[in-house]
Design a protein around this nucleic acid. Structure first.
Length: 516
RNA sequence: GGCAGCGUAGCUCAGUGGUAGAGCAGGGGAAUCAUAAUCCCUUGGUCGGGGGUUCAAAUCCCUCCGCUGCUACCA
């Protein structure tokens, strides 16, 4: 056993009514690279993703499709399971909110909240638009000449009242603020933390947590006329997946979650409602919620009406899987909004991957293949320059680790690429092609230093680019058991004389189709 | 409207009191191991405008202009 070092991280569960796009792929990708990193770093990791399958919209979509809701969700949730293999995600579980384990979990959570006096039956009243399926505040509405209340969307609203259970969110305002104060890293990035705290400080109202207007959801225990509020249902997936209500097994090992990764649109649910629900049920709140930004496409907002929504499959087919993974995490400081453009993508592929990283690997391994009998060369004494490059490579782990722990993936990549740059400069300065004639022993040392540097780089790029990194490690004859972070440094140093396969390019240049 | 943040080289951004920086793009050169990839040098900014504090401000204060986010129950 690895012992006590565990790491539990989650993506949001995706609403099955959506078609997977770059945004979904991005969220799960960020979790995937973190999960891979932590595993390589010796942690016992649980990485969860899944689908949110209840709610009025799903019910309606199923009806329109002429099939039962369950059959409908079975069908469309497949889109998200396909995304897993397309993007090479390494999740340990895939949860669906229609599974029996989840229904049992949510109902138990409800019972605990109810028995703790945190839920009461009241009635929910407000201006409701049937067309928008949404309630509006009095101040958002305008009045038409005929006296009707009109929503900002132009839809007519009517005053409706329905019985509803409420969660006593108002009672948690101070305890939430105290929780944020005592856990300054709970919400990231910092700007988002300020927004959430401002929201909570502005005052919290009790939250309606049940509906009677549709059926497709989890019934309230003891009152099946009520369906649970979708967010209570959805958020609970994070404890369901670790076995709740059984608190002995995985729950004891993994809960509280180390990280909930979310898009910035659903931060409030995770940073306000969720810890309140959990604390009210006398369960531990998660350690951290990170809200990342949105992608625009060629400078424009992604939207169905603009027809510029990019399917992850298109990216992977056009640019390659690892190239896409690299771009999404390198191009934009994680947490910021970013823009996807073909030009930038090609820039990254050709500049960073083909020219910098790929070329360093290829030029080094190619010289070893041709001049060192296709085996790891035998080094002599190291010079200052050798030690400098090796030192930079060996010093990378603590830097990269710190950046990953802060989810600053772009900074981790910057640090790795700095060493790639060092490597290319070292090749030019040492000019092993000249040493070949003048000092073959020195050439062997230089090439050994390069191979050892590349080994470090490839081990560290595994989380971001699993396939390409594996191919580089293959070319260094490093087997599956030689790829963990415990092999960085002297512990895993290449053994001179080890036969190496013929090197092959790993990052091809992207050449645009000839314009017509 | 209120609260918060941003505005630095053509582009994307780093830099929070002490002589303006990086990557990419542009220009010149070197090298030839390598996916014509690499390496070196270099052009380029009155740090949004104005005012103030200070020996010294991109960095602190005030003000104006522009942009963005949040301001609860569609997920």
């Amino acid at each position: 056993m690895t012992g006590s070092k565990t790491f539990y991280l989650t993506t949001p569960i995706y609403y099955v009514n959506d078609v997977p796009h770059i945004g979904h792929a991005y969220t799960t990708l960020a979790c995937d690279v973190l999960a891979r990193f932590m595993r390589l770093d010796g942690y016992d990791v649980k990485f969860l993703t899944g689908t949110d399958e209840h709610g009025q919209k799903v019910e309606k979509s199923a009806m329109n499709a002429g099939i039962a809701p369950q059959e409908f969700t079975d069908r469309v949730s497949q889109n998200f399971r396909d995304l897993v293999s397309l993007m090479n995600y390494s999740n340990d579980d895939f949860i669906r909110t229609t599974e029996p384990r989840h229904i049992a979990s949510v109902q138990e959570l409800w019972r605990r909240l109810e028995s703790a006096g945190e839920i009461y039956l009241g009635s929910y009243a407000g201006w409701y638009s049937v067309r928008d399926e949404a309630f509006y505040g009095e101040d958002e509405l305008t009045t038409s000449p005929s006296g009707k209340k009109i929503a900002p969307t132009g839809a007519e609203c009517e005053w409706v009242e329905e019985p509803s259970y409420f969660f006593r969110l108002s009672a948690w305002q101070d305890r939430l603020l105290e929780f944020y104060e005592q856990n300054p890293d709970f919400i990231a990035p910092a700007g988002k933390r300020n927004e959430v705290m401002a929201f909570v400080k502005s005052g919290l109202k009790d939250l309606s947590v049940s509906r009677t207007t549709f059926k497709w959801g989890i019934p309230v225990p003891g009152n099946p006329d009520h369906i649970m509020y979708v967010w209570l249902d959805a958020l609970a997936n994070y404890i369901t997946a670790v076995g709740f209500p059984d608190e002995s097994g995985e729950y004891a090992r993994y809960w509280p979650a180390n990280l909930h990764m979310v898009g910035k649109d659903i931060l409030r649910f995770h940073a306000v409602y969720w810890p309140a629900f959990l604390m009210a049920a006398k369960l531990a709140p998660p350690k951290r919620v990170f809200a990342h930004g949105w992608w625009t496409i060629e400078g424009q907002k992604m939207s169905k009406s603009l027809g510029n929504v990019i399917a992850p499959e298109t990216l992977v087919n056009t640019y390659g899987l690892d190239q896409t993974r690299y771009f999404l995490l390198r191009e934009v400081p994680f947490g910021n909004d970013g823009d996807f453009s073909h030009k930038q993508m090609v820039q990254r592929i050709n500049g960073n991957l083909a020219n910098d990283y790929g070329n360093l690997v290829q030029r080094s391994l190619s010289m070893i293949g041709k001049n060192c009998g296709a085996a790891v060369p035998q080094p002599g004494a190291f010079t200052e320059a050798d030690d400098a490059l090796l030192g930079a490579a060996r010093n990378l782990l603590p830097i990269v680790r710190a950046e990953f722990q802060a989810q600053a993936f772009h900074k981790a990549l910057d640090a790795i690429w700095a060493v790639i740059g060092d490597g290319n400069r070292y090749v030019d300065e040492q000019a092993p092609w000249a040493l070949k004639k003048t000092d073959p022993a020195r050439m062997a040392t230089v090439l050994y230093v390069l191979a050892e540097t590349i080994r470090h780089l490839a081990i560290l790029t595994q989380p971001i680019m699993p396939e390409a990194s594996a191919r580089i490690l293959d070319q260094l004859a490093q087997g599956p058991d030689a790829r963990g972070f415990d092999r960085l440094g002297a512990a895993g140093a290449l053994v001179p004389g080890t036969p190496l396969p013929t090197p092959q390019g790993v990052f091809p240049r992207y050449v645009d189709e000839a314009k017509s």
